[in-house]
Amino acid sequence: MDISGTSAVVTGAAGGIGAALAQRLLEGGAAVTITDLDASRLEASAQRLRDLGHERVIAVAGDASSEDDIAASIAAAEEAHGPVDIYAANAGVGDGSGLSATEAQWDLALDVNVRAHVRAARQLVPGWVERGQGCFVSTASAAGLLTQLGSATYSVSKHGAVAFAEWLAITYGDQGVHVSCLCPMGVDTEMLRTGMSPDAGDGGALAAAAVTGAGDVLDPLVVADAVVAALADETFFVLPHAEVAEYQRRKVDDHDRWIRGMQRYNRTLEGR
């Protein structure tokens, strides 16, 4: 897919992967609508992009999991830049640990990490099928292919994001709708830095330690480069950490052995 001249929406774009992806899309010639729940950080992100010389960017604050806010961001993008060609469902949350996670934490994880993707696709895919083109980018995680030590809510919801992206690609891929699913390990974002802070709970600290111990922590722009390359090649999985493919192969080849290895890694991180 040639991103030049397209209209894109990127959620969770006040920083991290979302802001980096918006930058790379703009550099590739797209017009971009960025959205995030944090209005002040979002506007700062938009201003930073304008300071880099990118004028074709607008900011629309909102909740990425809200039907109404999704509709508002799409409407704003269409008014400013024309019909949406690319929707990057990037917003995500990592709150909640293991069996102690509350119902509210489970609801939030499933709402933002999975249902937000479903709600956006529901609003966009029928029009893309009619036009014969469109692109949905799902930010999942390597946790959605493997697992996330320390956080059941994150692991389960990211598995759901991968599953929905696969379903979307299978169901609509031969009708002009391309789907790419981003599954990185550690990325230098506020979510990871918060998890590594002294104030993080046991689940968050363990999750951050698992991620940082498994591979390099990448700059968000490196991850965004991988997404743009996947869009150009129209590939499904975006794996900025190449080792994730090998980890997944080992899991599929011998699931019991992989679980035993993960149990050992978990014990090591917990100091048992």
Rank of each mutant, 00 (worst) to 15 (best):
A88I: 07
V156F: 01
Y87N: 06
A116W: 06
V84W: 01
C135L: 10
S100N: 12
S73H: 00
A61M: 06
S73C: 01
S73G: 00
D107M: 08
A104M: 04
A71M: 04
G62N: 06
I86F: 09
A72R: 08
A88H: 13
I74F: 00
E130D: 15
L52M: 01
T147K: 09
H159M: 00
D111K: 10
A59P: 04
L149A: 07
L99Q: 14
L108C: 08
S141I: 11
E67Q: 13
N113D: 15
D69F: 06
E79I: 10
G96E: 07
S155I: 08
L110E: 09
G132I: 12
E130G: 12
F164C: 03
A61W: 04
I74S: 00
D69E: 07
V84M: 03
R56T: 01
S66R: 08
E78H: 04
V156Y: 10
A163N: 00
A142R: 11
H54T: 03
V162K: 03
E67I: 14
N113V: 11
S138G: 07
A142P: 14
Y154Q: 11
A152S: 15
G98R: 13
L52C: 03
L124N: 11
A64S: 13
Q148R: 01
E103I: 10
E79R: 14
R119Q: 14
A64D: 01
A76D: 07
Q148Y: 00
S97E: 14
G160I: 02
G92M: 05
H159I: 00
S65P: 06
N113F: 09
E55G: 14
G144V: 13
D111E: 09
R115F: 12
L124W: 11
D63C: 08
G150V: 08
S66E: 10
V129S: 03
V93W: 05
Q148P: 01
D107E: 14
